[in-house]
Simulated scan of single mutants.
Amino acid sequence: MAAIIEPYILKPSYILRAGLKACHVDDVIQDRRCQATNVRVFKAHFGRHPLHLAQVWRDLQLFGIMTVEEAKEKKSFRGFMLANNFLRLYESEDVRNARFGGNYDYNRALAWDFVGRIASLKVHRIRCPTTWPVRLGASADGTQLRTNEPRDEEMRRNPKNYAYKYNFAGLNYLIVLSLWTNHIWFASGGDPGSTHDMTITRQEFVDMVPDGCRVIADDAFTGKTEREKSIFAVSNNLDAPAVKEFKGRAKARQETINKRLKDYESMSKPFIYGIEKAKLCFAAVITLIQYSIEDTSKFGEPLYCL
């Protein structure tokens, strides 16, 4: 029988106070402000509520991505906060090190280490069930994120990297949401910007859809095979007004996720650290968003119900 892991827990109140102190908001100022203001400033620097970051910290240990012994080391918490700050604000190293202090190389290594660890939670937190509770169970949409043009030995600009949304190089991702729960069921790993949404879907997601189940999507997901046509419920002029409204609300939930994704500066600005690290950051950010949308308490940010 496997031993039960007793994680080294950090309270949200500790993460809030320590995070704000790292941003030069000292104890006197924190005590003078109301809790809501402190949380708002914290989220502006680190992206998510301290409660959700506390849950991420716990899960890193429960899923074996970080040992309990590592969690007790001061450098681990520092790396964790550096990673979240980098994902949220995407600042230059000069600006980030002026805030956190310390050695450039040391902070850089810590930040990327914990970006990778947070990204590793994606396979545990974002999973498509093998059986769906209802036949019409999900919605899907693609989103493009801008990157610098990857180096190519043969051509300066490779058309496969072209992202039409930005008229520049980028990566295309597919995101699938559960219609009836606050869960992201699937998020692709990142394909070259010119890759069509349906191509990604055909290669990575179609086989996950149980027979007889359907997915709401836009016209880009018009299928070629009979199975694809039976899976995707796209716009139809013959739809009743209530059906059109339902599809519109499902698509609006997708746009909400896209907006929250791009609230992170590392997702909305051109990414300069290479394709593989861009994919790593996407995996980390989409996982962090999952923690906040599944929380239906007053601290969470759940999607509105259909």
Results as ranks from 00 to 15, higher is better:
Arg17Gln: 14
Cys34His: 10
Ala22Lys: 12
Lys43Glu: 13
Asp31His: 09
Gly19Ser: 08
Ala22Asp: 14
Gly19Asn: 04
His24Met: 06
Gly19Val: 03
Ala36Tyr: 02
Phe46Pro: 14
Gln35Met: 13
Asp27Pro: 04
Leu20Trp: 11
His49Ile: 00
Ile29Cys: 02
Arg17Val: 09
Ser13Cys: 06
Ile9Glu: 02
Arg32Thr: 13
Val41Gln: 09
Cys34Ala: 11
Pro50Gly: 05
Lys11Trp: 07
Ile15Glu: 04
Gly19Ile: 05
Asp31Leu: 12
Val39Pro: 10
Tyr8Pro: 00
Ile9His: 05
Ser13Arg: 07
Ala22Cys: 15
Lys43Gln: 12
Asn38Lys: 12
Ala44Cys: 03
His52Ala: 03
His49Asn: 04
Val28Leu: 11
Gln30Phe: 13
Phe46Leu: 07
Pro12Ser: 10
Arg48Ser: 08
Val41Arg: 07
Val28Ala: 12
Leu51Ala: 00
Ala22Glu: 11
Asp27Ser: 15
Asp26Gln: 05
Asn38Cys: 15
Pro12Met: 08
Leu16Asp: 07
Ser13Trp: 01
Val39Tyr: 05
Lys21Cys: 11
Tyr8Thr: 05
Pro12Asn: 10
Ile15Phe: 03
Ile15Ala: 05
Arg40Gln: 11
Tyr8Trp: 02
Val41Trp: 10
Phe46Tyr: 15
Arg17Leu: 10
Ile15Arg: 00
Gly19Phe: 06
